[in-house]
């Protein structure tokens, strides 16, 4: 069902462009047409190769297979891998013991959900100081992320755990999303601008776990929604609806035009519809003159 609709809408988009030309195209949302397979949901990413791994003697390749939480005794390879990665890539900003520095906030007690969110959405590590680190391809493999999460957790406990997301009720998810999230992220999930140049990003690449983490953690300018505001089933519902918003599944009417609303619609009406009709009358008028 899902794939059928998506392929269908891609084909419709192609037909649309072929028929009407590509004047005044919509503002492309990054990765909109082809959602990047996100390693966040447990699929080990090949991108770990980019990480210079051979630096220390401890056995480098022993990823914590299986979902078991890495309870950390001293000689655990996962823990030392986490410490190693942390010291090499995070400590410069967050301090060697996660106490924070001029360049980054303290990580003591932020909780596994926050660390996993920052790493799986590729926000951390930031390469240069930006006001708002964007969603990118994660810099670490899933196993390395687990190791880092465990290590940062060992610096000081507390904070929200990584939520487990089950299937949620679509209708409830739609209502909760419109009530709690649409004001910032737009009802289409396409994102919107906030004050002072910051944006609430598009949710087009957010996995269910990342959505649940964002709800609990409240990254950046986003407020955190604790359990007494949104219970676990409600989080499941919102995460499920966000998945429903992703891709072209809801664009039943054809090319989505970036789901930016009347502005792009107006541009298409002028740039394609009226341009075409003006061309037609020129042609008809030109023939009549002869």
């Amino acid at each position: 069902m899902v794939t059928a609709t998506r392929a269908d809408s891609a084909r419709r988009l192609a037909v649309f462009l072929a028929v009407l030309g590509l004047a005044a195209g919509p503002v492309p949302r990054p990765g909109y047409a082809a959602p990047v397979p996100d390693p966040g949901d447990a699929a080990p990413a090949p991108s770990s190769a980019s990480q210079p791994s051979p630096a220390g003697p401890p056995s480098p390749t022993a990823p914590g297979d299986g979902p078991g939480p890495p309870a950390a005794p001293a000689p655990d390879p996962v823990a030392s891998r986490g410490a190693d990665l942390y010291l090499r890539t995070c400590a410069s900003c967050h301090g060697p013991a996660g106490e924070g520095s001029q360049r980054g906030p303290s990580l003591v007690g932020v909780g596994p959900a926050s660390v996993d969110f920052q790493l799986s959405t590729g926000r951390m590590p930031v390469d240069q100081e930006t006001r708002q680190p964007p969603h990118r391809r994660p810099a670490f493999s899933a196993a390395d992320i687990r190791a880092l999460v465990a290590y940062v957790d060992s610096l000081g406990g507390g904070g929200p755990q990584i939520p487990t997301v089950g299937p949620g009720d679509l209708r409830e998810g739609r209502e909760l999303f419109l009530a709690n999230c649409a004001a910032c992220h737009s009802a289409t999930g396409g994102g919107a601008t906030l004050t002072n140049g910051l944006v609430a990003p598009s949710l087009d690449r957010s996995t269910p776990v990342q959505v649940a983490e964002a709800i609990r953690v409240g990254p950046g300018l986003m407020p955190a929604f604790p359990e007494n505001v949104l219970g676990p089933e409600q989080v499941d519902a919102v995460a499920g609806y966000v998945q429903h918003l992703r891709g072209g599944r809801l664009d039943r009417g054809g090319a989505s035009l970036g789901r930016l609303g009347p502005i792009t619609e107006g541009l298409v009406a002028w740039g394609i519809g009226l341009a075409l009709l003006v061309g037609v009358v020129r042609w008809l008028g030109g023939r009549a003159g002869r």
Binding site: R12, F16, L250, R252, A255, S256, E265
Partner: peptide, 8 residues
């Protein structure tokens, strides 16, 4: 071919 005003 082109979606407009997806009120849903």
């Amino acid at each position: 071919l082109a979606q407009i005003n997806p009120v849903w």
